[in-house]
Each structure stands twice: as structure tokens, then as C-alpha cells.
């Protein structure tokens, strides 16, 4: 796939899900034993083209996610490189024990793609908004957890996951007109964070589409001459320990995620940082362990204090 300005703009317009669909098709043309399994979400996962172009590499298991994981593991055990995808809560929480036994315990290698995670499906309510997937899956060994920041990173993360030895959960957030974080190609490695903006007073760790709001918040803070480092922690597990070592030198550590503040990126950071004698204070921004009312994506981000202005407000309140 040619990574140029035009495509980056196009991928941003169509959003992470549709980009995933195109990327899966391109990868499947190169990797002979690749198979995509889904649960009746071909259109929503941007897989219409895949289904029409490579029908014999595509299996729809119907709305049966436990069976999805078992069948995918059976295929993987026979040497196929399998991607599964459905909406995030059903891809993770519904079939959690199948994920534990097949991927965690048996180490059958599968790339699971959870679409529409976080708050993007707010108008559908919290049956569809998935804010617990990272927390739940983090406790299962032998499973990478990656949350790409934009459409380009979705492509790079998918390629890395498909070529990885270990199973990966790819958490897709954001909606169409997904803001552009990377306007040109860059090096992506599972487990290695990407510093987007440099600074030395505060360090913001974020993952997923919410990264854009963190960049905007950083700009506002820079104008108040507070120097902010923004780090895209696309891989929540295995977490990048080097950057966390570096974070010990900052006045304030801020974690930002479209996820419950319990169990997600913030918790992963705090777990590691708590091993230092006096690690800096950490501010956890995310869903405060509640299922609030529904609404549009922007409304919900604002309501859960994840829009740039509220992020700045909360940071300033915690900067002594």
C-alpha cells in the first residue's frame, strides 16, 4: 500500500474500520495462508471488498463469537494466519474464556480486531461502547494489546500483528473522518512507543484516536509555556518500559484513554511506575468507572472530560 499524502487523507476520511478492511485485502493478496473470520459485520468492518475479491479466504461465522474464536483457533492450529473481527465488546468480552484457552493457554496465533471500541458508538449506548476490553484482556498471558492512533497506524499495526508470532488484540477507536496523526510513513514496532511532541514538564501517554485531543491539549499548554511531551503508547501490552523509565523525570504523568481508568493504559503505566521509589504523580484521564448516558462521539468525549479543553483544565488543576 503506497503511503502518500493522498492515501493518508483518504484513509483518514473513511476511518479506521474501512481502512482495516482495505489493509486486510492488500495483506491477504500477499500472504497466501491469511484468512479473515467475522460475525456478520462484513460491511461495518469495511470487508465488503475483501469478501467479493477473496471469498475463499473469508468465513462468516454468524453472530456467534464463542464459535468464532474456536473455529479461528482450529484454522490457526492447521497453519493458517487468521484475523477475526467484530464489534469490540463481542470480539473480547463475549468470548473471553475462548480467548484465554485458545490464544492465551494454547498459544494459537490469531489477530483479533475489535471495531468501534471506546465511545465512537455512543448513540447506541454502552451495550456497544466498549470501555473494558483492555482491562479484561490484559490479564490473559501471551496476548499483545495494540490501539492505533489513526488510520495509517491501523494499517501498520495490522501488518505487524499479522507478521507477529504472538496473538494480538487490535483495538480500533475513532470514527470516519479520523484525525490524521502521522502525515508520512514512520517506523512502527509493537511494544515501542512513538514520541509525537517533545517537552519536559509534563508527559502525556495516550493510545487510540483520543491521541488527537492530547496533541491539541499540548498546544494549548505550550501557549501557557508549560512544556509537554506527548507519547503515543499504541502498545498497551507489552508496555514500553524505556519511555516509562524516562517518565520518572517529569513533574506530572498523564494517561489518557477512551477506556475505564481501571485496568487500561493508565493502570498499566501505574503498575510499572509504582516499582520506583518516588515516581511522579499520575493523573488518570478516561472513563471514571461509570456507564453514563449515550450520545454522539463528540458529546461523550466532552462529557467524560476527554476533549482538549477539559484535558488542559484537569492537568492545570493537578500541576502544583
Amino acid at each position: 500500500m503506497i503511503i502518500d499524502e493522498r492515501n493518508i487523507k483518504m484513509w483518514s476520511t473513511i476511518g479506521a474500520r474501512a481502512t482495516f478492511g482495505i489493509a486486510a485485502l492488500e495483506i491477504a493478496k500477499k500472504i497466501d495462508n491469511l484468512i479473515v473470520c467475522t460475525c456478520d459485520v462484513s460491511t461495518s468492518a469495511g470487508l465488503d471488498r475483501f469478501r467479493k475479491t477473496l471469498p475463499d479466504k473469508y468465513y462468516d461465522l454468524g453472530i456467534a463469537e464463542q464459535n468464532l474464536i474456536g473455529v479461528a483457533a482450529g484454522l490457526a492450529s492447521e497453519g493458517y494466519n487468521v484475523i477475526t473481527t467484530t464489534f469490540a465488546p463481542f470480539q473480547t468480552l463475549r468470548c473471553c474464556e475462548q480467548i484465554k484457552v485458545n490464544l492465551g493457554y494454547m498459544k494459537q496465533k490469531i489477530c483479533m480486531v475489535g471495531i468501534g471500541s471506546g465511545l465512537a458508538l455512543g448513540t447506541l449506548g454502552f451495550t456497544h461502547c466498549c470501555v473494558e476490553d483492555v482491562g479484561v484482556l490484559r490479564s490473559i498471558p501471551n496476548l499483545n494489546i495494540v490501539s492505533p492512533a489513526d488510520s495509517l497506524e491501523t494499517i501498520k499495526a495490522l501488518e505487524a500483528a499479522v507478521n507477529s508470532e504472538k496473538s494480538t488484540y487490535l483495538r480500533l477507536t475513532g470514527s470516519s473522518n479520523n484525525p490524521i496523526i502521522y502525515n508520512k510513513d514512520y517506523e512502527f514496532k509493537i511494544g515501542k512507543s512513538v514520541t509525537l511532541v517533545d517537552g519536559n514538564d509534563i508527559i502525556i501517554f495516550c493510545a487510540g484516536a483520543i491521541t488527537k485531543n492530547c496533541l491539541t491539549a499540548a498546544e494549548i499548554l505550550q501557549k501557557k509555556n508549560i512544556s509537554v511531551k506527548v507519547v503515543n503508547m499504541h502498545t498497551i501490552k507489552p508496555i514500553d518500559k524505556n519511555i516509562l523509565d524516562e517518565s520518572q523525570n517529569f513533574k506530572l504523568i498523564v494517561s489518557v484513554e477512551e477506556h475505564n481508568i481501571y485496568g487500561g493504559l493508565g493502570s498499566a503505566i501505574a503498575e510499572y511506575n509504582s516499582t520506583f521509589t518516588n515516581s511522579p504523580k499520575q493523573l488518570f484521564l478516561g472513563i471514571k468507572d461509570i456507564y453514563g448516558s449515550g450520545g454522539t462521539y463528540d458529546y461523550l468525549k466532552e462529557k467524560h472530560r476527554l476533549d482538549p479543553e477539559k484535558i488542559v483544565e484537569d492537568i492545570l488543576k493537578n500541576l502544583d
Binding site: D56, Y59, Q66, N67, I69, G70, V71, A72, A73, G74, L75, A76, S77, E78, G79, Y80, E97, Q98, V101, N102, Y105, M106
Partner: peptide, 25 residues
């Protein structure tokens, strides 16, 4: 021992994945 079993209700799904791959090949 081809698979870890014991959590009930999972073996048939694995069997389907294997059966599908045998058909494909």
C-alpha cells in the same frame, strides 16, 4: 495431544476450524 481441552463446549468449534482447513487443502 492436539489441543488443550477441559473447558467444556469448545472442542467442536476447534473441530470445525480443522475440518475447514482439511477441506481447503
Amino acid at each position: 495431544i492436539d489441543f488443550s481441552n477441559g473447558s467444556l463446549g469448545m472442542g467442536l468449534s476447534l473441530g470445525i476450524g480443522v475440518a475447514l482447513s482439511l477441506k481447503k487443502r
